[in-house]
Design a protein around this nucleic acid. Structure first.
Length: 960
RNA sequence: GCAGGGGUCGCCGAGCAUGGUCAAAGGCGUAGGCUUCAGGAGCCUAUCCUGUAGAGGUUCGUGGGUUCGAAUCCCACCCCCUGCACCA
């Protein structure tokens, strides 16, 4: 076992033995409840989970050190289909998948066989996941964890849904889904062989009248073009049917009739026939009452929608191309006995004015793009371009009835509902691309009836949800408007499905509450699950009345106790524990969950809990990338939490992730960076270890004051960053910037070890402890301090320790070194001797005067000069004064406001003394003799007469 | 398409709400030096261009604009990432 691993195991064991992260109510301390969406257990935890959870852990550890009673609970999501699907793939002997389990997930051979049982599989990953989460040092209270198939949890979900229904947030209706006819179940993206991301689309069917008995329902996304109709296209070779659809005689493709059977239609097919039977007949446009011909169109796909297409050649490139083809081929028409002159006479009918085009945009775009025929791929592009343009800027012309003058955008929805009401149209769903189920069956659209929805459309509910958002913090701030738009956009959410693991809908036979809908309020369940587990409370005892009492304070405690069999005291304890911890103070997740899980969580809290129990804060972070790419098992760049910790150690894994990004930016996991960080931590171990283990002397020079002062600045920054969940900034400051300060102090001080340095290192370790807990515990234990650093007091910013004077002294040194280096670089020499000249005292008068002016307002050179001329100390130097004033003004523009006001408070610094004290340091730095003179020292060595250049905060320099 | 977030000096990334203190933090990488020397690590210096004196020049996706002054404000355009529903 490596040293790192040994150390990690040691501290995990110590924490566990001390029950350090097990949190119980404590009325003397303020609480923080922090959470992370429980991971789905169809695979191992990976570095993506680790990133999001590390942010929660850093925050939890930080708050714990600040003295809060912090609870971080964890759970395991088993609800849904993928777990079943995965298990079935193992059962089927899917070798590709089994290989992934073996090689990527690292599942041992003897376990693999047992994965035919999906519950076993979930249990395996859960146990592994718990070990992995512990190994990376997450400070979780494991007494409260659960899986979502536990009967006790399901009782909680039943209670939640019972309440939602009673409050009217659950509705019933129909819903179109992608459906596998063989499996008899909806086909989600995960269940598909092909056609990922394809969703049902609703077509408008315009019911053209074929004759007195029958209609030809033509499918379209642009029903407004009904005014520009010139003909209908039917595929002469496809099979069509005459069918009674809900009592009406329809002529549609055979495939369409099959599809409509699944879309809540009663269908009776009367007869089959070839499309050519229809060619040449006429029909009536129900909107305009005009008659038009049916023409042959081989491009018409009977598998798409109804297999009946109407033609608008003025505005649809495909229609124009098909018409033009026919007009040029009279022999084709004669096969169907159609008068070719009649077809030639068909003119596109213009109905839309659109910017940049004339009357017949489709004709124009076909000409412009030189599209040859219907098979030209450019036709598709032309169609998209024109549709987009017409939709956004097109205006309907006078021949469009009551919709004339409206933009398409305005008219569309209105027109659809008008036509629908007057019975001119109907609708059907279809898929834009073929979708195949994993069982290789082609999917269709099915309309599910009796579907249960969470009615996120309800304006009152939306309003409540917005109030929740309004009263809480969202990190980063920029995510807040996103939540509000999501709340506006969410519609009814089908909250139950027919297959998969989960809680059965309490009132609906055969329905199971789906996975995004059973995970919205469970943070409340953590607060009492400890008691449920410890007291082995039976699921049947967990009646709705019990939860009503615990969460809502409803009912009589003794009565509830008597009815449920749960001891009255225990009931009360649970109620108290819930009220102690709730609401949660932080929930952090990746940004992909904003439009669903996190928003649902907000909705459900709004619906079920009173405002004082609404969420306090939500954090959102980016999606982890691996070497610049999205992480996927199939890409071979999948990195498990377990694997990362084994290879790099827990501290490096956590910190590499947290240094990657904050806010909504996506962090990038780069193996090289993690390795670097691992070695950096080894170095840190040596660096800090040396300091804390050697003897210390008490000193209080400007350098010690400088170090203590800098530490205050770092403490302030790390603390405020962590408070806003800016974990990257916080870690960067705590790790690198602070380290740089310590290094600088050591360099300046030489080899001696002071108490101030040790104190600084202790504070440093505390600031690092939320990020790299193992390393910090280890070093902390060597400082001689008692107890765990995990619960040590967070360093407090102390304004009285901020020492502007010593900081300015150090600035003098760093500035003069930078200037010297600049000179050396320009001269391209290695120096043997460097002389510094500090300014004459009258220059300080002048400098401070100008400083005062820049702080109080405008600086006017004329007035300054007059003032200086009247000063008897300055009068003898007026020539130099005239020279200096512009230089000082310019130098001061480069100084920050804070530093300027510090300088004003400090007044004169003794540059002579500071430089002489640093002589040895500078000598070693430049490897040259260093001399310090005052400008007015008559005996100074100054061959190039540089001394007169000296200014306060900028001694003159001479090098040779 | 709609919505949200972005494009900064080799790379990763701060800065942008409150314009000047920005050639622009920090990390990584690279180069030189020191130390150690089995390997590694550590420490220092440099790292847009120019410069024999602490300076000057040109930069912050592209093109305009506002201003004494813009990485930061306004307008247009280009490119990238994320989500868009029964799926976790």
């Amino acid at each position: 076992m490596s040293q790192t691993k040994e150390m990690e195991q040691k501290w995990i064991a110590k924490w566990e033995n001390a029950h350090l992260f097990e949190a119980d109510p404590d009325s003397k301390r303020e609480k923080k409840l922090v959470t992370f969406p429980y991971p789905y257990m169809n695979g191992p935890l990976h570095v993506g989970h680790t990133f999001t959870a590390s942010r929660v852990d850093a925050y939890a550890r930080f708050k714990r050190m600040q003295g809060y009673n912090v609870l971080w609970p964890w759970g395991w999501h088993w609800t849904g289909q993928p777990l079943l699907g995965a298990s079935q793939r193992v059962a089927r002997g899917d070798q590709a998948y089994i290989r992934v389990l073996r090689e990527v997930d690292g599942v041992p051979e003897e376990e693999l066989n047992k994965f035919v049982d999906p519950l076993y599989m979930a249990q395996y990953y859960t146990s592994e996941g718990r070990l992995a989460a512990k190994s990376v040092g997450f400070s979780v209270d494991w007494r409260r964890d659960f899986t979502t198939v536990l009967p006790t949890y399901q009782k909680f979900i039943e209670w939640q849904y019972k309440n939602l229904k009673e409050k009217g947030f659950v509705t019933r209706g129909t819903h179109p889904v992608v459906w596998c006819p063989k499996d008899q179940s909806p086909t989600g993206d995960h269940d598909r062989q092909s056609g990922e991301g394809v969703t049902p689309e609703e077509y408008t069917l315009i019911k053209y009248r074929l004759d007195d008995q029958s209609v030809l329902p033509a499918a379209t996304f642009r029903p407004e073009t009904v005014y520009g109709l010139t003909n209908i296209w039917i595929n002469p070779d496809a099979t069509y049917v005459e069918a009674i659809v809900n009592g009406e005689n329809w002529v549609i493709s055979q495939e369409a009739a099959e599809k409509l059977k699944e879309q809540e239609r009663k269908i009776e097919v009367k007869r089959n026939f070839k499309g050519k039977e229809l060619i040449g007949k006429t029909f009536e446009n129900p909107v305009t009452k005009l008659k038009f011909p049916i023409l042959p169109g081989w491009f018409v796909d009977p598998k798409t929608a109804t297999g009946v297409v109407y033609s608008v050649p003025a505005h649809a490139p495909y229609d124009w191309l098909a018409l033009r083809d026919l007009q040029q081929k009279p022999e084709t028409l004669s096969q169907f006995g159609i008068d070719s002159e009649m077809v030639k006479a068909i003119q596109p009918i213009s109905i839309i004015t659109v910017e940049g085009f004339g009357d017949h945009p489709a004709v124009e775009i076909v000409d412009k793009m030189k599209i040859k025929d219907q098979n030209d791929p450019a036709a598709d592009q032309a169609t998209k371009e024109l549709y987009k343009k017409e939709f956004h800027s097109g205006i309907l012309k006078a021949n469009c009835g009551q919709y004339a003058g409206k933009t398409i955008r305005e008219a569309k929805d209105l027109l659809i509902s008008d036509f629908r009401k007057s019975g001119l149209t109907d609708s059907m769903y279809d898929l834009s691309e073929p979708v195949f189920c994993r069982c290789m069956t082609q999917c269709i659209v099915k309309i599910l009836s009796d579907q249960w929805f969470l009615n996120y459309s309800d304006p009152k509910w939306k309003e409540l949800a917005k109030q929740v958002v309004d009263q809480m913090n969202i990190y980063p701030d920029s995510a807040k408007p996103w939540f509000n738009t999501v709340i506006d956009w969410l519609r009814e959410w089908a909250c139950a499905r027919t297959t998969g693991f989960g809680t059965p809908l309490p009132w609906g036979k055969g329905w199971i509450i789906e996975t995004l809908s059973d995970s919205t309020l469970y943070m409340a369940f953590y607060t009492i699950n400890k008691h449920i587990k410890q007291n082995s409370i039976k699921p049947e005892s967990l009646t709705p009345e019990v939860f009503d009492y615990i969460f809502l304070g409803k009912g009589n405690q003794n009565q509830v106790s008597a009815d449920s069999g749960i001891h009255s005291d225990l009931l009360e304890e649970m109620r108290k524990e819930f009220l102690y911890w709730y609401p949660f103070d932080l929930r952090n997740s990746a940004k992909e969950l904003v439009p669903n899980h996190l928003s649902f969580c907000i909705f459900h809290h709004a619906a079920l809990f009173p405002p004082e129990l609404w969420p306090r804060a939500i954090g959102v972070n980016g999606m982890l990338m691996v070497e610049g790419q999205g992480m996927h098992k199939s890409k071979g760049n999948f990195i498990t939490l377990k694997g990362a910790v084994e290879k790099y150690g827990a501290d490096a894994t956590r910190c590499a992730l947290l240094l990657g990004a904050e806010g909504m930016d996506d962090p990038d996991w780069r193996a090289e960076n993690v390795t670097d960080l691992k070695t950096k931590f080894e170095a840190l171990m040596g660096f800090a270890g040396n300091i804390i283990s050697s003897d210390q002397i008490a000193e209080n020079t400007a350098l010690e004051r400088w170090l203590t002062s800098r530490m205050q600045c770092r403490i302030k920054e790390v603390t405020s960053s962590l408070d806003e969940l800016k974990t990257r900034t916080a870690l960067q400051t705590a790790l690198f910037e602070t380290w740089n300060d310590l290094r600088w102090y050591i360099q300046r001080k030489g080899n001696c070890n002071t108490k101030a340095l040790v104190e600084a290192v202790k504070d440093w370790l505390k600031m690092l402890a939320p990020f790299a807990p193992f390393l910090c515990e280890e070093l902390w234990s060597r400082t001689g301090e008692d107890g765990f650093i995990s619960v040590a007091n967070w360093p407090l910013f102390d304004d009285s320790k901020v020492d502007a004077a010593s900081e300015e002294q150090e600035n003098l040194i760093t500035d003069i070194m930078a200037d010297t280096n600049n000179i050396l670089k320009a001269m391209k020499i290695t120096p043997t001797r460097i002389c510094y000249y500090t300014p004459a005292s009258w220059k300080w008068d002048l400098y401070l005067k100008i400083l005062e002016k820049t702080l109080t307002g405008e600086v006017k050179i004329n007035e300054l000069m007059k003032e200086f001329a009247a000063n008897k100390d300055l009068k003898p130097h007026m020539k130099e004064v005239a020279n200096m004033v512009p230089r000082v003004i310019k130098a001061l523009t480069k100084v920050s406001g804070i530093r300027k006001s510090n300088m004003q408070k400090i007044r004169i610094i003794n540059e002579q003394f500071i430089l002489e004290e640093s002589l040895l340091f500078l000598k070693n730095r430049f490897n040259a003799e260093i001399d310090v003179y005052s400008e007015d020292d008559a005996d100074r060595f100054d061959p190039k007469r540089r001394a007169s250049m000296a200014m306060p905060y900028q001694p003159a320099i001479y090098v040779e």
